[in-house]
């Protein structure tokens, strides 16, 4: 589903590469934690997958798209098949919860009656059934993140990318978010989640890919956050 072949990324303003010859493959339906200290290249990797940036070397594959070579006008098509969740939620501030979720369907041109039936379903799934008319500013962090997840999942993406989705949440709320992401993974959606949260990684025992200074440092099936020395 995701394949990186010798991918490098050098930002013009920096001498050290953000990613240095990274190769990694993620199969359909896998759940992968992407870990590493700040500046290790996690966010860069996610940005390359979303085509917010293009690699300076190597090839990035998502499904059958050669992401780095994708024509500009085809980028929306790629993003419509990927869901993404961020630490800072990134909800549209002047749209209600329901409209935020509906937006992901509107941009792919789903007819209005579909939107009207699908949005409440997804909101129910994330336990926000009664809050469709709230504004994002009225939500708690956990609720906002659940809206973001609903938006990411509503058009059944091939891949769910999550960039420290629990970074701003207390452990209990974070646990709820992880349960949701796992549930989405069980529907067959590939999940790639960048995180700093040792507790979550250790408790879930999933595949762990670790980056260090832009290089692939570790790739363990059923791994933990860090080996204690």
């Amino acid at each position: 589903m995701i394949r990186l072949e010798n991918v490098s990324k050098v930002y013009p303003t920096s001498t050290r590469p953000a990613l240095d010859d990274v190769s990694v493959a993620v199969e359909r339906g896998e759940f992968v934690f992407l870990i590493g200290p700040s500046g290790s290249g996690k966010s860069t990797l996610l940005r390359l997958l979303l085509r917010e940036d293009v690699p300076t070397g190597g090839t990035v594959w998502v499904a059958n798209w050669n992401v780095g070579r994708l024509a500009r006008r085809r980028v929306p098509r790629l993003r419509q098949r990927m869901g993404c969740v961020f630490q800072d939620f990134r909800l549209l501030p002047n749209k209600t919860v329901g409209e935020n979720v509906a937006f992901a369907l509107e941009v792919i041109g789903k007819p209005r009656h579909t939107v009207r039936t699908v949005v409440p379903e997804v909101l129910d799934m994330v336990d926000l059934g009664g809050k469709a008319d709230r504004m994002p500013s009225e939500l708690s962090g956990g609720e906002a993140q659940r809206v973001a997840i609903a938006r990411a999942f509503v058009n059944r993406p091939l891949v769910l990318l999550a960039d420290e989705p629990t970074g701003n949440l207390d452990p209990e709320t974070a646990g709820g978010i992880m349960t949701l992401i796992e549930r989405i993974n069980r529907t067959g959606t590939t999940v790639l989640m960048a995180t700093h949260d040792r507790q979550i990684v250790d408790s879930m025992r999933r595949r762990v890919v670790e980056l260090s200074s832009g290089r692939l440092a570790r790739d363990d099936d059923r791994g933990v956050y860090g080996t204690v020395r």
Binding site: L50, R73, P76, R79, P93, F103, V107
Partner: peptide, 15 residues
């Protein structure tokens, strides 16, 4: 910011 979010969700430039 808003437009950036829309683009991430897959909205076209046109849209």
């Amino acid at each position: 910011t808003e437009v950036g979010i829309m683009r991430l969700v897959g909205a076209t430039r046109w849209y």
